[in-house]
Each structure stands twice: as structure tokens, then as C-alpha cells.
Design a protein around this nucleic acid. Sequence first.
DNA 1: AGTATTTTTGGAAACGTTGCCAGAACGAAT
DNA 2: ATTCGTTCTGGCAACGTTTCCAAAAATACT
Lengths: 360, 360
Amino acid sequence: MARPVVTIRDIARRAGVSITTVSRTLREPAVVRPDKRERVHQAIAEMNYVPNAIAQQLRRPRHETVIVIVPAIDNPFFADIVQNIELVAHERGYRVLIGETQSRQDRLDHYADMVTTRLADGLILLGALLPSQMRDARTAGLPAPLPLVFACERSDSAYGPHVVIDNHGAARTAVAHLIATGCRRIATITGPLDNLLCQDRLAGYRAELAAAGLPQDPALVAEGDFSLGSGRAAMLRLLAGADRPDAVFCASDQMAIGALQAIAAAGLAVPGDIAVVGFDDLPFGAFTVPPLTTIRQPTAAIGATAMRMLDALLHGRDLPERTVVLPHQLVVRASSVAGPPLAPDPPAQPEPPDRQETLA
Amino acid sequence: MARPVVTIRDIARRAGVSITTVSRTLREPAVVRPDKRERVHQAIAEMNYVPNAIAQQLRRPRHETVIVIVPAIDNPFFADIVQNIELVAHERGYRVLIGETQSRQDRLDHYADMVTTRLADGLILLGALLPSQMRDARTAGLPAPLPLVFACERSDSAYGPHVVIDNHGAARTAVAHLIATGCRRIATITGPLDNLLCQDRLAGYRAELAAAGLPQDPALVAEGDFSLGSGRAAMLRLLAGADRPDAVFCASDQMAIGALQAIAAAGLAVPGDIAVVGFDDLPFGAFTVPPLTTIRQPTAAIGATAMRMLDALLHGRDLPERTVVLPHQLVVRASSVAGPPLAPDPPAQPEPPDRQETLA
DNA sequence: AGTATTTTTGGAAACGTTGCCAGAACGAAT
DNA sequence: ATTCGTTCTGGCAACGTTTCCAAAAATACT
């Protein structure tokens, strides 16, 4: 188990050169003479030397490592964003580590500690939870101790830059679509309402109803927690009401799928009796029965932009904007519009070109 | 951005003590006199000092960090295992980092490098992919250079210990169940067949058919890649055949859900026309229409056992067994058995007590 | 051949900790 | 007062790199 550790010193001895030369052979080979370079490489191969990254990092100001904090690792929506963070990260020489919090403060703090103790450079938060030390520093009037970027979720913008979509507007778009297809009694299943993003979506829902001159009925608002089971339960509650809704706007696709099942279990038809619109455009949504109308979030752009912003932050560059708002898109499928099959899904959201430049 | 870095030296100066005393105040407070201890703590608070973990680790032999390699972060099956790895890891003072490979060798190697370069202590592989350096070392006749444990997937056991289920037996159980309910023309949708685990499940399927004296029809075997879309496509292929199957055993729930949709799209009934059995018992499977019969894997035990094995490995303790096989369980729901609603789902698999002790 | 320039090299000081060891300070026992 | 144990403390050498800087070697130029 405890194989003797080969260090740069051993290589130097073996190759008959100085430690410096070995280091340089690895770091900037061009500057060392070919014959020595050769000898060094040979020694490295023979002795099976691998540089100790810990020691290297002790001398380097930065480690090119970022941590992505995900509330729940099994949410495909986050998974897609993480994918795109990794794309940009790799391209710029960063290593990406993923930390799952299950929305627990202690877990988040544990990962945040990796940044304060200099094991990693920065954080991308896909959840709304805030590291304790950020809050503490804030109340103590200190500057933000951690370089971090919020993606998807919204928080107090004093804590760091954001990349988000217009949740209020997206909710309005979804509800407007339902109204346009003739629905009049539109319910909503929200996410946890202590979450700013969910408040935004609920407000958008209300705003659109108001704009269309439709009445607001508190009995048509049910709170879920983004999960499938909670969507199902919420839908059952809505169906139990005296005057059943003719449409439901759900704050996540997972909840929308739960709603679909509750509606089917009640023997009602979608969209005939009740139209359903979700949010996120999970890959799964295209396969439900019927396929789900939803709001597509620009996951590629969200991930890429968040990583670019963090990169900028870590290099002390000024960000052109503290908050970047990316465009969403309504994807209409059969859960909201009856009739013959619709046109195939629109292509994936293209990368907005402007970000690319401002943050390059 | 570039706040001056406060080091242990600054604290020593401020508190009027030596560096050693500061270190000791943090490491073994009991031994330093209360008054100095107090002064040090105060200086730490005033200057906002956080020890540099990189520097600490340079002096320590181990870092208490493990990396879990997941092929695809959005697979809920892996998510659940990761959860349970984290549980045991935390309890034993390890930090868990997750790396996603998308089955790409370069990404895996990148994470594996973190272990060789001593940024992390060991690896738990949830995928079948093997770090290049393992293979290289093997062909060069060297000992395994990385402490790692395979979970779920099977590989050449010379590379490291395994914790798995009996995939061959589980497939037999599933097929036997279908035969018991009266099915005779049983198809299967496999995972990628270069994968040992998938080969095992296919072999189990064949063995059970043979044992029941049913014929083997190559036209009843379709290959997928675990994903929902691939299951749908495979089912369509099976349905296109001359003599349609009356049941299908799928090597993953995701593929089974795809199959359900293909069957529904063809206007056939489940289980009336075709019975469907999946594999994994994803939370989602309980919510499909109809709910999915499946093989439940003991995710809690798999995760916990894998982490315990890695812990043992890292401490140079001998493992009681190189390969641990955990029990699976058939969960019968309406996709395979028609009729009145069945008994509620069986409770989650209890932790097998024996592992706990042998590896504690 | 001799000097000026450029290219290569190696010594040594960091980086921020920990932990050994010897010595200082303290109290207790003579 | 002196001696003897304890308890605390600080100096210093690690840990394995990288990176100045100055010196040495190689090359170019008169």
C-alpha cells in the first residue's frame, strides 16, 4: 500500500540535473536543452514520477478548480446546466467538482469551506441556499468572502452576480398561451414559496390573469416542492375543489408530470378537460402522454454564462452586468393544444451571441 | 478582489506568541495555557484568519477526500447511490466530490489524476469505464496505482473490489415472473452489450427461458443504451416484427418507460397485450401509466458498502471479500399483472446487517 | 583569440503549515 | 535558596514544488 513516494528530487538525482531543471522540463520544456530534457523524461518514466499537486498548489495563487453546488443531483434540469458549465470550464482549464446539498445548510457550508481554505477557487450555486459565511460577513459589514455566481436561482444580488431567466415573464407567457387556447379557469402549482424564483412565477401568473381581466381565485393556487409526487398531490387538491380548473400551469415539469397522472387517475382528459403547462423542458416531457407543453430554459446558455462570469470574477475582471437575464421559450406540445400532431419541437435555444463577447 | 492573505504568521505576531503556539491552539488546545489560547482566538477572529488547507495537506499523508465517478449525473439511480455514499463518508470524516464522465475516458482520467497527484485519496466508480493508468499499470505488470472500488458495474476484479448485485439472477427472477403470469413470447431490451452487466442480464434472461423450455428467438432481443429514447426505439423495432411479443423485460426503468410509450403509441394495452418489467426501481416508475413492475436494487446498501470498502482499502485493512453481492428484490406493479390494485409497495430494502459488521 | 551576447543552468528562497526537540517558566519539594 | 519535575513555549526543519536571480556555458560577433 505505502509505495515509496517519488519526488522531483529523486528525478533530479537520477537524471543528474538540478531540481530546477526537472521542474522546468515539465513547466516550460522549450527552455531546457534537448539532451537533458530527454534524460529527465527518461528518469520520470523509469521511476514512475507524478508531481504532487498539493505541493504545486502551495506555490500557485489559484487552482483552476470550481465547485458547482446542486440542491439535488437527480434533477435532469440541473444536470444539463452542469454539463454546460463543464464545457466552458474545461475549455478554460478549470476542473469542475460537483457538490450536492439536498438543501442542507451544513453540506453547503462544507463545500464553501473548500473555497475559504483555498482548496477551490469559486462556487457556482444552482440552488438558492446561501453559504453561512456570506451571510455572516454581510451582517458584519465585511466584503463578500467568496467568489460565487448564482445560476437559475435568484437571491439578494449583493451576494454575487446572477444568471437567470425572466421567471415573471415566462409565467406570463405560459398563462397567456393557456388563455389564448380558450382556458378561463387557470390553476397553478407553485414551487416552495419561500423561494424567490417561485414567487416570481406566481406573480407572473397573477399578472397575466389580471391583464386578461380574469378573476383570481386563491383556491386555484397549490404549493408543491418541485417533485413529481408533490405535483400529483397538489393536482389532487385542485381537483377536489368545487369548481374544477380547465388548465394548470406548473412551476416545474416534474410537478406537471405528477399533475398529468393525477388528472388521468381522475378519469379526465388532457387537454380536453384540463390543459397542462410545465416549466423547464426536461427531456422526459417530450415523452409523457400527452407530450408536455412547457417553458424551455436556455440551459446551455445558463451554464456557459455562469462559468464565464465566475472566470471573469476570479480574474478580477469587471463584469459588464451583475445580472444576466437569458431568453426563455414556450414549447407547445399536445398537453395544451388538442388536434393533429404539431410541428416537431423547435431546435435547441441557440447561444445568445452577445454574452460570448462581453465576457470572453 | 485580492484581499491580503492572513497567515498563521500574522496571527502569531498579533497575539504575541509563536507560530507553533497558534498551530497548537488550533490542533490541540488543551496543551496551551488559557490566557494565550484566548489571545490567539481573539487575533484569529479580528483578522479573519482561515488556515490554508493546501498547506496543511502538504504535511498530512491523507486528505479524507474521495471522488465518486458517475457516468451521467441525471440518472436517479446513481443519485440515490451517491446519497448513501455521502452518508457513510460524512460519518467517517470524508469529503465527497462527484465527477461526471459522460462515459468519456478523458474526463475519467482527469478525475483519476486527482488521486495520483494526491488531491484526493480514492475513487468509487459507478460506471464501467476504467482509468487509463489502471490499464497501463496492469499491462506493465505494476501493482494497481489507485485505490478504487467498483459499485454497480462489473469489471475485471483484478482492478479492485466490487459491490454488485446478482444481475444474472435478477434477470432470471424478472423473466420467471413474466412466465408465471402466463407470458410465453418474452422479448428483452438490453443495455449496451459491451457492458458486462448487460451481458449478465441478457444471459440471465436466456437462462430462464431455457429453464422453462421456451424457445429463444433472436428477433426478440433489442439493444438500447439505458436511455428512455433508446427504449422507445427498441420497442418499436420489437413491435415491427412479424410475431409480436407478449412481454418485454427491460434492463433499465428508463428504457421500460420508453417501451411503455411505444406500446401505448401502437394502441396496445399494458399488461393486456404486452407485459413490461423494468430494472432499477426509479422513483418515477411508481408513477407511470401503468405503474412499472421492476427489480429494485439495494441502492442504500450498495452506496454504504462501497464507501466502507474504500475506507478499509485506504487504511490498508484487508477486505473480507473482494466482491460483495447484495440482494435485489422484485417489485410487482400493474405493468405486469392485470387486475385490482395490488398491495402497496414493499418497504425499502433494509440494510443487510452482516456487511455492517464485517467492514465496520 | 577575445569580447559581447544569448541561452541554459543551479542555488536558494519562498509558499503556509505541522511536529520534533530543546529550552524557559513555573510550581513543588527539599 | 536550591533543585527537581512538570507544563508550556518557540526555533527550526520538514512537506514538494515553483521561481527569482545570478552564474556558467554556449554561441555570435569583431
